[in-house]
Amino acid sequence: MSDMGLPASVGAIRRVREDPHRLGHRAHGAGEDMEGTGHGTSGPATKRIIVGYGFWIFLLSDIVMFSCFFAAFAVQRGATAGGPSIGQIVDIRRVGFETAALLLSSYTCMLSFAATNRRNLLWTQVFLFVTGLLGLIFVLLELQEFIELAGKGITPQRSGMLTSFFGLVGLHGLHVTLGGVWLATMMAQVQIKGFRREIVHRLICFNLFWHALDIVWIGIFTIVYLIGSGA
């Protein structure tokens, strides 16, 4: 009886307790396959790991799409056709506020997931709401920027640089907007259905999505705004 392997989830509980930061130092030697990961003889990976992996693949494909828009901007950077250059249309203060809003929303999103892990409905909802609010601030600031530029006649059809600029920044804004719709849906689902397993899996995916948006924004504010404002 003693040499009988424990079920995968028991090993996973132990692993989380012994290695809370998931640094992944697994013991070496025979029969030491990490339980619940789908390696070796440890049985199939848990659904949570598989769901996270699948969504991670989607996120990477999304990032590859963004990289095409980044490449277009990098190539079109100097193609102003006599119009304004990137340095002339950047308002660095507004970009700072946008960055702060998105970074803080990433933080509160993660706090909401910590509350989810504790199965605390109130704090999950509170932090999800704050996340959505910060995301809304971000989208409104970006909208304000686009409207101001359009008011000065700076529109996507003005030059190749502006086409790629509005394409890249607008695509990211669209992602944040759709993420906000998803967030509202998740709040409703958590409220009505509670912390069922599939709801928690959806919350994991939403978290990954929201953090990935922040990663893309790092690329945008560095390559488009900061380097652009200097040149």
Partner: peptide, 22 residues
């Protein structure tokens, strides 16, 4: 446990990671 059951995780290290990341 039934196969595929997942453990309830602690929230402490998530908050710690979030603070560090921020």
């Amino acid at each position: 446990h039934a196969p595929g059951d997942e453990p309830l995780e602690d929230s402490g290290h998530w908050i710690y990671n979030a603070n560090l990341g921020l």
